[in-house]
Design a protein around this nucleic acid. Sequence first.
DNA 1: CCACGGAGTTTGGTACACCAAACACTGCGA
DNA 2: TCGCAGTGTTTGGTGTACCAAACTCCGTGG
Lengths: 148, 148
Amino acid sequence: MARQVKLNASAEDYLEAIFQLVAEDGAARTGEIARRLGVHKSTVTGALHALADKGLVEYSPYSASVLTDRGRRVASEIVRRHDVLHRFLKDVLLLPDGLAEANACRIEHGLDREVVDRLVAFLESVADGEAREQWRDRFRPGGGKRAD
Amino acid sequence: MARQVKLNASAEDYLEAIFQLVAEDGAARTGEIARRLGVHKSTVTGALHALADKGLVEYSPYSASVLTDRGRRVASEIVRRHDVLHRFLKDVLLLPDGLAEANACRIEHGLDREVVDRLVAFLESVADGEAREQWRDRFRPGGGKRAD
DNA sequence: CCACGGAGTTTGGTACACCAAACACTGCGA
DNA sequence: TCGCAGTGTTTGGTGTACCAAACTCCGTGG
């Protein structure tokens, strides 16, 4: 089975953005990717070349990019990981959404699949009712945060 | 109070290594730091200059480095964060120690303090008896991983 | 006392991620 | 059909993190 491609953090960010833009708009334009990631258009062009070389995106100059099949597979793994992490931070650690998102963005690239799977199992185990309630109150929602 | 210094990932790694070496050996020699972090000695020299400029380590050429007071404070924050994370991965997600450590190393730099605090609260809440047992079995130690 | 070898540093070079400005393409309206 | 505005690309340059090799320092044995 084709082993996991090994992308670095920034490549994963681009792939993730492209995946989302394709889902939203049907295709990912260079400028949109740049806007979403907060980088310069020229930087995106470079990244697109690299991803195309790896066979993950279909890139042709001056037109919107789409993912290859392989790119789509890899990207959805990345999105899943991001999502799991975000949900964990928000729903289990009870962090405000923005903070959960920001932290998810920063740490998502460092997680092995095993960890993500474990996190999923964990989320499922506290998904409904009982168990979750149980510590929602031993743990308190809004409580002891001072904003110094 | 002097706000959190804002180090990048690699600076934090160096600081952490120095902290540990000082704890173990009384001082951190360039070559030891290099060995521990798996980088070249010359790279460490550069990093030590940077940390010295920031007032975090006491560096003088050809002799072992130690932390300044400020460096020690910052470093112990970093170590705490690493530790909390490691414990969470190992004791809550029940990952094998090596995997927990590796993942902690990779994600530790991206965590805001709030998250660490939350994680600590979480660890405390499941620290002893009851609550922990409770899902140790709804979650099972070695069990349900299919590697599809 | 001095030279020799191991520890540490400097120097020059690579790779990456990025930006800014100059340049190129393209589709729409006059 | 032609030009222009907007979108995209190229080019040149920055900062960071790193390595390898040349060089420097310094304690120890002869």
